[in-house]
């Protein structure tokens, strides 16, 4: 599945630096799956997947997802996250974070003196970041993708 991208050690994939652009026409007939088209702005235009997902290639990295703790945010096991380091992490954004030697994907909570990493799955408690714990917000998750048919 990932053979066209460079694999960088455990679990890190980088976008191809100069990926070939492939703009395909968007179908103007929407497919009914019960959600609004995220590509509505592109109607009657051509869409390149790289352009759509990667706004700042120089600071963008791909991370494959393991686990189900973020399923409420539509992030599932095996998805590939698009992570942009150039975006300032804010309260409410989904982020890749390093905490105590672990690499996590969680929603960043930062309000009223409380800093926490919130899972989007009721079976996972929020991870409160206390004084003395080391939290590094590595980058902001700006999107994800997955291929179903190999």
């Amino acid at each position: 599945m990932l053979e066209s991208a460079a694999l960088f050690g455990p679990g890190i994939v980088v976008p191809m630096p100069h990926a070939p652009r492939l703009a395909l026409p968007l179908d103007t007939v929407k497919i009914s799956a019960g959600f609004p088209s995220p590509a509505a702005d592109y109607e009657d235009k051509r869409l390149d997947i790289n352009d759509y997902l990667v706004r700042n290639p120089v600071s963008t990295f791909f991370f494959p997802v393991e686990g189900d703790s973020m399923q409420g945010a539509e992030i599932f096991d095996g998805d590939i996250l698009v992570v942009d380091k150039s975006i300032r992490p804010r309260h409410g954004l989904v982020v890749v974070a390093f905490v105590n030697g672990e690499r996590l994907v969680k929603r960043l909570y930062r309000r009223a003196g409380r800093v926490a990493l919130i899972a989007e799955n009721p079976s996972y408690p929020a991870l409160e970041i206390h004084e003395g714990m080391e939290l590094e917000v590595w980058g902001v998750v700006v999107g994800k993708f997955k291929r179903f048919v190999t």
Binding site: F8, G9, P10, F98, N100, G101, E102, E136
Partner: peptide, 10 residues
């Protein structure tokens, strides 16, 4: 570069 992607190496 090695440290960047591996939190255990920090």
């Amino acid at each position: 570069c090695e440290k960047l992607f591996d939190p255990r190496l920090k």
